[in-house]
Design a binder for these strands. Structure first.
Lengths: 110, 110
DNA sequence: TCTTATACATAAGAAAATTATGTATATATT
DNA sequence: AATATATACATAATTTTCTTATGTATAAGA
């Protein structure tokens, strides 16, 4: 994912946010979009992505829809209603995390 | 540590930064300082803290000095030269992480 | 023809945390 | 005096999340 361990725990937030913006996406598309948006800084590996998608689906945050394009399989994921609500929570948590960390590493500015 | 999983992976950064500011600190003091600086948002658990300190010591980033205060044991940790350099790296990684995540979740502002 | 890209998946192992314990002393409360 | 809370360390079992490696299959480009 990256040389930095800080990304641990943020994959779910990333997936939910992307799906919140793009309506429906398939796994490989997510990896490419992340690479593009972060200018190569962050590469989502398949070993992390697919289990994460399956977990989100099992938790009822995502719905899946299978399609065949160019004779190749695609699994399109989209947010459920619950998933949309959870996205809001995750984004609030991210904002809170950033605020908290800035308070810790820049205490003079906090 | 917190209800949010985002803190996973940031404990080392937090420890190093606190030691960079406070010269020497002992474990329990670190837990209290974090609680104070984050107004209770973040609570470092002992099961996470002590193994992390031992690991940083084993890696040569921290030196330890044992003291007895009020008949109770304290283990004061301080940054080694290597530890000070690594602190700079970790803080750069944190800044980079925040920048990257903002590019992902606020693409319009990126 | 061979490599790269697209597209899914899982399994073994590592890393970092949580949760649950354990020991011990000091201080505050009932 | 008894009990609870705070101070101060530690580790072990388990869980979560990721990396690395591997596997299958089709399409496109060199």
């Amino acid at each position: 994912m990256s040389n930095s361990k800080l990304y641990k725990g943020s994959l779910t937030t990333i997936i939910l946010k992307l799906l919140n913006e793009h309506d429906k996406m398939y796994g490989y598309e997510i990896t490419q979009k992340v690479k593009e948006l972060t200018k190569g800084e962050l590469k989502i590996t398949e070993g992390a992505l697919y289990p994460a998608l399956h977990k989100l689906e099992a938790e009822g945050l995502l719905d899946v829809e299978v399609a065949k394009v160019d004779n190749r399989l695609r699994k399109y994921y989209k947010l459920t209603e619950t998933g949309t609500k959870e996205t809001v929570n995750k984004l609030e948590e991210l904002a809170e995390y950033i605020k908290t960390m800035q308070a810790l590493v820049s205490p003079k500015l906090a």
